[in-house]
Design a protein around this nucleic acid. Structure first.
Lengths: 223, 223
DNA sequence: TAGATTGTTAATCGATTAACAATC
DNA sequence: TAGATTGTTAATCGATTAACAATC
């Protein structure tokens, strides 16, 4: 039975994890997987996986489980990863360079197509096969390639300005590495990569844990 | 009135964002802030901020708001950031190097004290003032410095092994950059930095958005 | 005093889990 | 057929928000 409830964002955020786990299963040669098995790998309950998938259709077989390849194909299509999304990266410091060079970003559905930096000394240099361009060219490049996704790896002081530029040029999804929360119009999605905040939240538990190790209830796989 | 409900994890994760915003307010010379104003900066409701803080005590004044410096000091103490946490970093590829060099990590309460890599060619090299050590020395170094926090920036294939080593040596909080979910004992906290998964979740909305821009309800500040 | 804003309670909203009929 | 596992419903659990008395 189909139903038509809108999938909550928290479900959308788990889909990429399901997809990745399915890719690993394919690498291992596994053909079929149950919600139970999949759940154990990513520390999620079987019920949750089934419920999540039910927002999009019926992909399994009772008594059997899910065909790994087929389920992956379904999830990738749901996420829009059957098409390729050009991505621009703004800010080519140490972090930006690591991002540009990171193999993982050349992943299903994503391709970094341009690098930008405000530092004139960097403009013209090549990183990971791409020539660094001036910040001021963001608008034209984004429009020309119809880019919808951007990664921002500039200092916090520059992040809002760069975001405004990107949004104005047509970008609708931003992955922000700068340690500051930016303001965007409603139609734009911003997500944050904030390792320091994450570490700062773990110290809370460590500070309470000190010697007696059996106080904590659960530290598993919080994503 | 004090009450003694245990703060949920979702609250603990917001505290570092409050702290950071307060630091920016201090830089701007602001002495006092209301929950309303603070909330607007980080896209959180005023009620949520007040409720969150109420798990830990009473820090504001009716009619006035919060003393910025005092509230920051309280939050830092709650998070355990009044002490300094030594951190080890395992995996000194492009990403690991960017992490080691990133100023932001030399932040309140954190100090990277050792770098490890399995590649013999890298061992002995210096990055950000630290000499890269062999993976096999993790145990002794972690024990010697009583390290509780680690950052893992190795390939996915190595992540579980490295995690096991760290946990066995005494680490209780792990920030994992590897695109794989690792299994740990209950007393250990793992959190993930997973930019590709985040991008893959944004494409979902972009794929649906294509031309008609007024369909989306809210893309703000999802953290 | 009048205006502003807190801390807290209760109401609402949303997400997770348990349970099970359907069925491979 | 017997065993396993799905998809879905209802129950539970948890987090957010609205509202307001207290009070600076």
């Amino acid at each position: 039975m189909e139903h038509f409830e809108l999938p909550p964002d928290v479900v959308i955020r788990r889909l990429p994890l399901y997809a990745r786990s399915l890719r690993y299963l394919i690498d291992e040669g596994t053909l079929s997987v149950s919600s139970q098995e999949l759940g154990e790998r990513i520390n999620v309950t079987a019920a949750q996986i089934r419920k999540d998938l039910s927002y999009f259709g019926e992909f399994g077989k009772q008594g059997i489980g899910y065909d790994v390849e087929k389920l992956l194909a379904h999830i990738e299509r749901i996420l829009g990863l059957h098409q390729e999304w050009p991505v621009v990266l703004v800010g080519v410091g140490h972090l930006g360079q690591a991002i540009a060079r990171y193999e993982g970003f050349h992943s299903k559905g994503l391709r970094i197509v341009a690098l930008f930096d405000s530092d004139p000394a960097k403009v013209g240099q090549e990183v990971a096969g791409l020539t660094i361009q001036q910040d001021t060219d963001i608008t034209s490049v984004v429009r020309e390639h119809d880019v919808r996704l951007a990664i921002v790896a500039v200092p916090a002081t520059r992040a809002q300005d760069v975001t405004d530029l990107l949004v104005q040029a047509g970008v609708r999804g931003i992955l922000n590495y700068a340690p500051i929360i930016v303001q965007v119009p409603e139609a734009v999605w911003v997500r944050y990569i904030d390792p320091v905040a994450v570490l700062h939240s773990m110290t809370y538990y460590l500070a309470r844990n000190e010697v007696g190790l059996f106080t904590s209830t659960n530290g598993n796989g919080v994503h």
